[in-house]
Design a protein around this nucleic acid. Sequence first.
DNA 1: GGCGCCATGTAACCAGTTACATGATTGC
DNA 2: GCAATCATGTAACTGGTTACATGGCGCC
Lengths: 172, 172
Amino acid sequence: MIEFIILGFLMTRNMTGYDIKQTMNISTSNFMDASFGSIYPSLKRLVQKKLIYLEEIATNGKLKKIYSITDQGKEEFIIWLKSPIEVSKTNTTSALSKIFFFDNLNNEEITNSINTYINDLTKLKNNLLDVKEMLKKHDNNFEISTLNFGLDFYDFTINWYKNYLDSVNKKL
Amino acid sequence: MIEFIILGFLMTRNMTGYDIKQTMNISTSNFMDASFGSIYPSLKRLVQKKLIYLEEIATNGKLKKIYSITDQGKEEFIIWLKSPIEVSKTNTTSALSKIFFFDNLNNEEITNSINTYINDLTKLKNNLLDVKEMLKKHDNNFEISTLNFGLDFYDFTINWYKNYLDSVNKKL
DNA sequence: GGCGCCATGTAACCAGTTACATGATTGC
DNA sequence: GCAATCATGTAACTGGTTACATGGCGCC
């Protein structure tokens, strides 16, 4: 996850590990954050995989490590970005971390991705409706509020992404 | 987390590790799940802490491990249940895992907990509004959709819990 | 001269999951 | 007889966080 976020940032400009952390603080920290303890090791791994490369720049006698994305890195990032958004029952991070970088895709690609996502969410919602019916029939006394929250949450999310799609397509 | 869920289940009846997993499957899996690989080690730890105890029952010559909650376990569970619901920017699990077990609290305790939660959510929402204003002023071009999702998500959640409170208090 | 920010890094820990291993019992 | 379910458990891995360690630079 964090590795793709880093690639996404490096799509727009070259950065140090510290820059990445600062940028996350003001842009993504609302839905996803990472500590230096995960950023620096991720950078190391990304260099090993040749998805980014490292230039050590001497500024005032001090070394700064500037990272840039490679062509292979760009490719892998776009593959990840286009891959279906993982549906989660409780967590919105997976979807948000992709739409944050959607300016790297064209409108058709965005529309496809979001439509697939809305479809997947609708399936989950219908599954949950089935569960609710089943529980009702079997007359058990489990707390139903959490299940209702799930249903309302799916409705909210599905609706939100429908509106998002509208606004994306109005831009053209 | 999973340890408290287990305690919550044992509040109503004695169970084996397997029972706990089955019960989670039909009741909490909508918002939280756990594998055997976390359930069995958790049970071991809970016994060590004396929050539950173990009776090995021979059924048809085969040993079954039945776990029961101790008085100390009940106490710790209620302390956890009454403790403030952790606010999360993207995840609903923390809140749901508590309201699932709220039949262990009285209406006043539930109302206090939810009001605190709504308050905390409102603070987070206002922080995010400030961030949005700041970003607007500084005219940067970060994707704003994710921030808007955050705001709408807070609104949805705050509203949902207000309605939940109404329904809880109507029951009396 | 000391505070805050820039800058990089690692070791220990955490709360789980996945995959594997084992074996009894039940129902068709 | 064999598949599904009941039942328990562990080792390796995962994707991080927290805390710690280090040191330079700018500025008041």
